[in-house]
Amino acid sequence: MAQLTSQGMHANQQITFLSDGADNLRELQFSFYPESRHVLDWFHITMRLTVLNQYAKGVEKSDPAIGTVSFRYT
């Protein structure tokens, strides 16, 4: 909060936080500015999805029976 105040931020001023959606970070943001707006950072979400995709590829190679399960999108 001191950092925002030093930059000229006022307690009643509207602010938008950009983060990866972690609960602890979101709680911290709202504790400083309850009226703040929270926006997800798509870069971090994409990184998480990429890790899950790489994990799935590894499962497919290590255990083909599990890795060949297909999903249908409707």
Results as ranks from 00 to 15, higher is better:
His38Leu: 05
Gly58Phe: 06
Gln7Arg: 03
Thr5Asn: 01
Leu18Pro: 01
His38Gln: 13
Gly58Thr: 13
Thr74Cys: 03
Val59Asn: 09
Asn24Met: 06
Leu49His: 06
Thr16Gln: 07
Tyr55Cys: 14
Val51Phe: 04
Thr68Ala: 12
Phe17His: 02
Ala56Tyr: 10
Thr5Phe: 02
Val69Leu: 12
Met9Asn: 03
Leu28Phe: 02
Val39Glu: 14
Lys61Asn: 08
Asn53Tyr: 06
Thr50Lys: 10
Glu35Met: 00
Thr68Ser: 15
Ser36Ala: 15
Asp23Gln: 11
Asn53Glu: 15
Ala56Cys: 09
Ala56Lys: 07
Ser19Leu: 04
Val39Thr: 10
Phe71Gln: 15
Pro64Asp: 14
Asn53Cys: 07
Val51Lys: 08
Asn53Ile: 05
Pro64Tyr: 07
Thr74Gln: 11
Thr5Ile: 04
Phe43Gly: 10
Pro34Val: 06
Asp23Val: 10
Ala22Asn: 07
Val59Tyr: 02
Thr5Pro: 01
Phe17Ser: 01
Trp42Glu: 05
Thr16Glu: 06
Thr74Ala: 14
Ser36Thr: 14
Phe30Gln: 06
Trp42Thr: 12
Tyr33Ala: 15
Ala65Thr: 14
Met1Ile: 09
Thr16Val: 11
Gly67Asn: 12
Tyr73His: 10
Leu18Cys: 15
Asp20Val: 06
Ala2Leu: 02
Arg48Ile: 11
Val51Leu: 05
Glu27Met: 04
Gln3Ile: 09
Arg37Pro: 01
Ser70Val: 09
Arg26Leu: 05
Gln14Ser: 10
Arg26His: 07
Thr46Glu: 08
Glu27Leu: 03
Gln14Tyr: 01
Thr46Cys: 10
Asn24Tyr: 11
Ser36Gln: 09
Gln54Ser: 11
Gln29Arg: 04
Thr16Phe: 02
Leu52Thr: 07
Thr68Val: 04
Tyr33Met: 09
Gly58Val: 09
Thr68Asn: 15
Ala56Arg: 12
Pro34Leu: 02
Val69Gln: 14
His44Gly: 10
Thr68Trp: 03
Ala65Lys: 10
Ile15Thr: 14
Thr46Lys: 12
Val39Gly: 03
Thr50Cys: 12
Lys57Ile: 03
Ser31Gln: 12
Thr74Phe: 05
Gln14Arg: 07
